[in-house]
């Protein structure tokens, strides 16, 4: 990993660790919100930024994860953090099932399908599918999570839980980026025909991108449920998918630090302009438009180069000598 990026991460980590000393509960709560959206943006970035699949239904996977954890917790008494991997797994399975028939679609068509998917999930939740989602009221009384026997309750404690998960996610996703798996997704995004022609099973990798992106959104959903203790279909509206999509594009599609910056800006900016009341969304919208005209590649489009001079070996046997 690049040294400057590492320094950036360390500075951000120290700032977040010290944040509760300097910020009030409201401000910490905004940071928690940023953290959750960073996780969602990173999860969508796998699908949209890395694999180049236009998905505007990420809230569906977020919802599946949140509801899975909430149902497991309120009905079966499963602790929230134990429910988290189940949320991820179920969201991934759900993603593979719904994406399988449509995953070959080209950009804009896929976008329309995923918008439909998001709406179907939301309406299904309102209609109390299987009689377990609580309809429009949602589910309440979700228990607080325990970490090493300690109950996580205050915004400060959630700050450490959420951003701890962000740290793990960033670490893992950077590893993914530099692997055979990550490269396959990049080839897919750059030219799917050439990728398939080079021997990459493009259908499989499209599904894997969806599965992994959904798994992370699902796990994030379970943290969200634990933080709110109440969830309802409103929290997973089409607008959520749009906002997360925006974060990825605005920050720099495919760039891990970029989408994190994108998420932070999209969450914090409307908070700063709160005094403008209703005009704040106007300002927000205008900034978006200017951004896309002036800097279409995103705020921080930087991606780590996968290989440097040190990675290129010298004095190799020529392939003629190989069997």
């Amino acid at each position: 990993m690049n040294r400057r990026l590492l320094v950036g991460y360390l500075v951000a980590a120290v700032a977040l660790i010290l944040a509760p000393r300097f910020l009030d509960a409201y401000q910490v709560d905004v940071l928690n919100s940023v953290g959750l959206y960073v996780l969602l943006a990173l999860s969508l970035n796998l699908i949209l930024g890395d694999a180049g699949l236009f998905n505007m239904g990420q809230a569906a996977f977020y919802a599946v994860g949140a509801y899975t954890a909430a149902i497991l917790n309120t009905r079966l008494g499963v602790p929230m953090l134990w429910a988290m991997p189940v949320s991820g797994l179920l969201a991934a399975i759900f993603a593979v099932i719904v994406a399988r028939p449509v995953v070959h679609l080209r950009g804009d068509y896929l976008l329309v399908v995923t918008i439909g998917l998001g709406e179907i999930v939301r309406i299904a939740l309102v209609n109390d599918v299987f009689g377990v989602t609580g309809g429009a009221n949602g589910i309440f009384g979700i228990a607080r999570p325990f970490l090493f026997g300690h109950k996580i309750r205050t915004p400060d404690e959630f700050l450490y839980l959420i951003w701890g998960f962000v740290a793990v996610t960033v670490f893992l996703f950077h590893r993914l980026e530099e692997s055979r798996f990550g490269r396959a997704l990049t080839f897919l995004r750059e030219d799917a025909v050439a990728a398939e022609g080079s021997g990459i099973d493009t259908t499989r990798y499209r599904l894997m991108a969806f599965a992994l992106g959904a798994a992370w959104a699902g796990m994030t959903g379970s943290i969200y449920a634990a933080k709110m203790t109440i969830i309802s279909p409103e929290s997973f509206s089409f607008w959520e998918s749009v906002v997360v999509f925006l974060m990825v594009i605005l920050g720099g599609s495919g760039s891990i630090p970029g989408v994190m910056v994108g998420a932070a800006i999209v969450v914090i900016m409307p908070e700063i302009f709160r005094d403008l009341a209703t005009a704040r969304m106007l300002v927000f919208g205008l900034v978006m438009m200017v951004m896309m005209v002036v800097r279409p590649q995103g705020l921080l489009p930087w991606r780590a180069p996968r290989f440097r001079a040190g990675d290129v070996p010298r004095d190799l046997p020529r392939p003629e000598a190989a069997p």
């Binding site: 692997s179 055979r180 490269r183 396959a184 990049t186 030219d191 050439a194 021997g199 990459i200």
Partner: peptide, 24 residues
């Protein structure tokens, strides 16, 4: 049909993909 935005090395690694197996 090369992956124009990627390095020559990464392009060739695309061909290597089907002879390697590391997964997620």
């Amino acid at each position: 049909r090369l992956f124009q935005q990627l390095t020559a090395l990464e392009n060739v690694l695309a061909g290597r993909h089907c002879r390697t197996s590391a997964g997620l």
